[in-house]
Structure formats: C-alpha cells, structure tokens
C-alpha cells in the first residue's frame, strides 16, 4: 500500500504522459520536495509519507501544454476540481493519482517540538507516532499534535477526483460544522482586538509573495497589482498599510475560489496565519451562496455568476 502501490501506478501512468509530478525526499527527512518524473529510473525516488506537504496540483496550469500525471492528497484534489470549474486545465490532459491521507506534518510544529535542531532522521510508525532524531536525542511525537490545523477538520481525506487511487479510500470522521469553528471564534473578538491582532501579524510580512506564488488559485501571478504601476494601488513601501492592502486583495480575489489547501500559510517564512483570512471569506461564501470551492466540477464559483437578486443578500432599501 501507499508508496509501493503509488510507484506501480506511476510506472503505468508514465507510459502515457510527458511528466508525472510526485514527491521525493528533500534536504532532510522532514522535508519532501516535488519531483518531476519523466524517466522510469526516477520512480525509485518517489516517496509518500506525512512529510509530503506541497500541493502539487498547483503546477498544472503552468504545464498546460503537456500531458501531466500528478499525485494529489484529498485536500490538493480540490484544486483540480476548482481548476476544472474555472477552465484552467484540460482535464483530459491530466492523470490524477490520488492518495488517501490521514494527515500531514507541519514542519514548523515539528521543529518547534525539537527546538529547531537539525533533523537526522524521521520515522513514521504504524500507530501514528513519529520518531524524530536530532543531535540532541530522539523525540516521539504524535501526528495529530504536529499536523497543520487544516488536517484537524479535514472532510476530504480521499481525493474528490482521481483516475487512480494509491490506497484504500478513507472516510472522514470530522464534523463539517467544525471546519469554520476557528473563524467563528475569532469573529467573537472585538473589532479593535482583531485589528491589533492583524496589525501585529502583518507587521512581519516581507512582501516576498511566497503566499501568492505558492497559491494554486492565484492565477494573475505575473500581473499582480502588488507590483503593478498601472494601476498603482500599492506602493513598494514596506509599511503596514501596503502589506495590509496586499493581503486583503489576495484574500478577496480568492473569495469562493480558495480550496483551503493552506499553502499560503505553510510557505510563509514569517509564520503569518494568512490562511485564516481566506477561510473567513470562504465561510461567508458558504453562508451567502451555500458554495464550497473545489468539490464539484459542475459548480460555478459564485463570483463567476451574476443574479439581479441574491437570496441571501439584502439589497440596500433606498
């Protein structure tokens, strides 16, 4: 199961596609890195474990000219559905290798637990325990304790779309009403408290745009208003108002489009919880339009449609 089955599938898939995107080990055992496989001998490098965090579906729009196989977890698979809704990929040119997933690790959380020591080894045990070896010794962790928050409310452990499945499907045991619990809790705070919170968080932003460039749905990429001089809505200054403006626009452009893969937050080198903003907007989109991004290819994102009257939006009574 898992890695071995995945290798078998990819060996087959590789015969019909130009490239298969999977995972291999990165610079240490805690880091996986995407690998672009176009030769059979690369297949041995493939890994599958909870360190396989990146959303590989993000590469698909830039590889539109090719026929591509891609390994996706449940959460990542929603990207593919969203791409289909928005016409960003040609589904017939994509072979989806789904991998049911019981949760990945948050590298930041693991490093915190082992005092940021260099990683010598990471072993995942059958019972969900993780053994992390550093020069300071061995630390036993449980996956649940070091998973990103998105895993704790995951409703789609099995990909929602796939052509091959590399393991037995898993049913979610999580409650749908818990998905936006964090958002609701945060909204309980006063406006002033929320402002102070976000100002403190955004103060750290270095405008590296890792959140934007790693975002599968940030399709403007090279013509982003963050760098545009025409319109010149955001200056290049490194102050709070400009950073705030960038993140607001990033979030609003993702309203009802964000598939909640959490890449924006995972890749932030400054540890800013930017995913919360996108979740907040998705929560609103759910409330207003009963829409959930990236689950049904037949859906239309609400911001792609227009109705003179929306059932749940009260017009200004003039």
């Amino acid at each position: 199961m898992g890695p071995e089955k995945m290798k078998e599938i990819i060996t087959d898939v590789l015969k019909d596609v130009d490239v298969v995107i999977g995972y291999k080990q990165g610079f240490d055992k805690l880091h996986a890195t995407p690998c672009f496989i176009n030769k059979a001998e690369q297949i041995e490098e493939i890994i599958w474990s909870p360190v396989c965090v990146q959303n590989l579906a993000s590469f698909l729009p830039s590889l539109k000219a090719k026929k591509v196989g891609v390994v996706v977890k449940g959460c990542d698979s929603r990207t593919i559905v969203q791409y289909m809704q928005e016409g960003l990929i040609d589904r017939s040119k994509v072979v989806v290798v789904g991998i049911p997933c019981t949760g990945v690790v948050s590298v930041k959380k693991v490093l915190d637990k082992v005092n940021h020591q260099p990683i010598e080894d990471v072993v995942f045990e059958a019972d969900g325990a993780i053994l992390v070896k550093t020069p300071a010794g061995e630390t036993k962790l449980s996956l649940a304790d070091v998973s990103p928050d998105k895993c704790s409310t995951c409703l789609y452990p099995t990909p929602v779309v796939y052509d091959h499945l590399a393991a037995e499907p898993i049913k979610s045991v999580k409650a749908p009403e818990d998905v936006y619990k964090d958002v609701e809790e945060f909204e309980g705070k006063s406006l002033e408290e929320r402002k102070v919170y976000w100002e403190k968080e955004f103060d750290r932003c270095i405008r590296c745009y890792a959140c934007r460039n790693a975002c599968p749905m940030c399709v403007c990429q090279d013509s982003c208003i963050a760098e545009s001089r025409d319109p010149h809505w955001i200056s290049q200054k490194s102050n709070l108002s400009e950073k705030f403006m960038f993140h607001m626009i990033h979030s609003i452009h993702l309203a009802g489009r964000c598939v909640e893969c959490g890449e924006c937050e995972r890749v932030c080198p400054m540890g800013i919880p930017v995913n919360a903003l996108k979740k907040k907007l998705n929560h609103d989109m759910k409330a207003l339009y009963n829409y959930e991004p990236g689950v049904n290819p037949e859906d239309k994102p609400p911001m792609y449609t227009f109705s003179v009257e929306e059932k749940k939006i009260e017009e200004h009574k003039l």
Binding site: T33, C35, I206, Y209, A210, P269
Partner: peptide, 15 residues
C-alpha cells in the same frame, strides 16, 4: 530539471 519545482517567489532572496 533543477528548478521545475521553483514557484519563482522571493522568499529565498529576501531572506
């Protein structure tokens, strides 16, 4: 081959 996985952000240069 070396950088097909790069997303062309600026984290590496800014840090």
């Amino acid at each position: 081959n070396a950088v097909s996985k790069c997303v062309s952000c600026g984290a590496c240069t800014y840090l």
